[in-house]
């Protein structure tokens, strides 16, 4: 079986080639990293459709700004930074439009009704599925504050080292560790009953 040499190349080499206009190299970078980016932004934007949009936009932005990536700068950290910024902005914009739409009233025939919001919690069938643990943990992570959620997602779900997270988020290693500690406190409070109920 023939091996595509582009898929074996390092990020730095692929970035260099993409900067020179090689679209295939950028596609390989996408294949290599889009899962991580999707999983990093999902808990922030909270829906699959939004996570798709933000992931795509992050790569489009990255492609557009490839020229500004300095030699030796890690592509993935840079990409995480772009994606997390986009996800935060996405949530902020959505929150603004959500307030607007919630203020509107629904016209139903001749009646005007207050808008009802569906409960997004998992149904009993879903909770009974094998993925219950994951659903519960993901829900607990999504309830964390944005700063805590970011470090938990990057460190626990993506395996990014603390030093790298500090570069991505733009703060000191001590701050990242501190956020991680407080986030674990919060997760312990949220998941305590679940953990204790487990055999």
């Amino acid at each position: 079986m023939a091996v595509n040499p582009a898929t074996e190349a390092s990020d730095a080499l692929l970035v260099q080639r993409a900067q020179a206009g090689d679209a295939e190299s950028f596609r390989v970078l996408f294949e290599r990293h889009h899962r991580r980016i999707y999983n990093a932004v999902y808990p922030i934007v909270r829906t699959a459709a939004d996570a798709e949009d933000v992931t795509q936009d992050a790569f489009v932005r990255a492609y557009r700004a490839l020229g500004s990536l300095r030699e030796g700068q890690a592509f993935l950290s840079w990409l995480y930074r772009i994606a997390l910024n986009l996800a935060r902005n996405h949530v902020r914009d959505r929150r603004a439009s959500l307030w607007e739409s919630l203020d509107e009233q629904v016209v139903w025939g001749e009646e005007t009704l207050e808008r009802q919001i569906a409960d997004p919690g998992p149904g009993p069938a879903q909770a009974a599925e094998e993925h219950e643990v994951q659903a519960v943990v993901r829900a607990a992570i999504e309830e964390l504050s944005p700063a805590h959620r970011e470090v938990v997602v990057l460190h626990h779900l993506q395996g990014v080292p603390v030093e790298e997270i500090a570069r991505v988020v733009g703060c000191s290693v001590g701050t990242v560790k501190s956020r991680l500690a407080r986030a674990r406190d919060a997760l312990k409070r949220k998941l305590r009953s679940y953990v204790l109920a487990e055999p």
Partner: peptide, 12 residues
């Protein structure tokens, strides 16, 4: 146990 739970969440 909570930290172990976090390890059980696979990527989407």
């Amino acid at each position: 146990r909570v930290l172990m739970l976090l390890d059980r969440v696979p990527p989407l």
